[in-house]
């Protein structure tokens, strides 16, 4: 990391420390009812308890299972459709505005339909997460292939490349950075929409657990679960950006 990046990180850590100190102060001075803001130490004890006795991992397992199932569907569909459309400028011009338009409508409004069709179990969460994750993947795949320098394609064609060679040697490597960033955004959007759908109508998983604790006015445990989800999201995000930058370095070297 460069100097500015270190400084930014230091500021962020300092901010978190200040927030935690403020939280402890507010809890000690009893400025806010513990139902609205539970004491910091109680939340931490709760967090340690759910992690050490493993309850949180049961819910995490359900949510991650939904996420990976949804993501597998979205990847397969998004990459296939994206490549099929992205190969031809004509079909890109036909479909890109259409897909962008659909993505602009909040798909969450159809969540009641997903629940109606697939029930309140994990199936509706998988389908909903897959729908949300599909769009960034397909749009970035189309965009990535569309942005491949036309000269590369012409050169490969004039050298007599077959369709498969064109795909493997020209289109795929040149489009990959953009596609990979779509794949990453799709993963995160899929994660958040699954948590959201669990909250709105779910029986299991982290999202529904947060809501149930909140409805039981057990705010300390609810805060612990929320912190846990934020941590998981941060870990997933860091892993993905590490993968992405490693990937881009390999791609740039080859």
């Amino acid at each position: 990391m460069t100097g500015t990046a270190w400084r930014a990180r230091a500021i962020q850590i300092g901010f978190v420390v200040v927030c935690v100190l403020g939280w402890i102060y507010v809890g000690n001075a009893r400025l806010i009812s513990p139902i609205f803001l539970p004491r910091f130490d109680r939340v931490m004890t709760e967090l340690l308890r759910i992690v050490s006795n493993g309850t949180v991992f049961v819910y995490l397992g359900v949510t991650l299972f939904e996420l990976f199932a949804a993501y597998a569907l979205a990847l397969a569909a998004g990459l296939t459709v994206g490549f099929l459309i992205g190969r031809s400028r004509f079909w890109v011009a036909v479909f890109e505005p259409l897909l962008n338009g659909i993505f602009a409508v909040p798909i969450v409004i159809f969540l009641p339909l997903f629940i109606l069709f697939l029930g309140i179990g994990i199936e509706s969460k998988i389908a909903f997460g897959a729908t949300y994750a599909f769009f960034p993947i397909v749009l970035n795949t189309i965009g990535g292939i569309g942005a491949v320098d036309a000269r590369f394609v012409t050169v490969a064609q004039s050298l007599g490349a077959t369709r498969w060679q064109m795909f493997k040697r020209v289109l795929l490597p040149a489009a990959l950075p953009v596609i990979v960033s779509g794949i990453r955004i799709g993963f995160l959007i899929g994660f958040f929409s699954i948590i959201g759908s669990e909250m709105i109508a779910g029986l299991d998983g982290l999202g529904s657990q947060i809501v149930q604790l909140g409805e039981g006015m057990n705010t300390a445990a609810m805060f612990a679960y929320i912190l846990f989800v934020i941590l998981i999201a941060a870990i997933l995000n860091t892993l993905l950006s590490l993968l992405q930058s490693r990937f881009n370095r390999v791609a740039a070297a080859s």
Binding site: L188, S193, G207, I210, I226, A233, A234
Partner: peptide
Amino acid sequence: YSIPQVTVLPL
């Protein structure tokens, strides 16, 4: 911004 907003919806 990096905090997933849906998780804090109950708050």
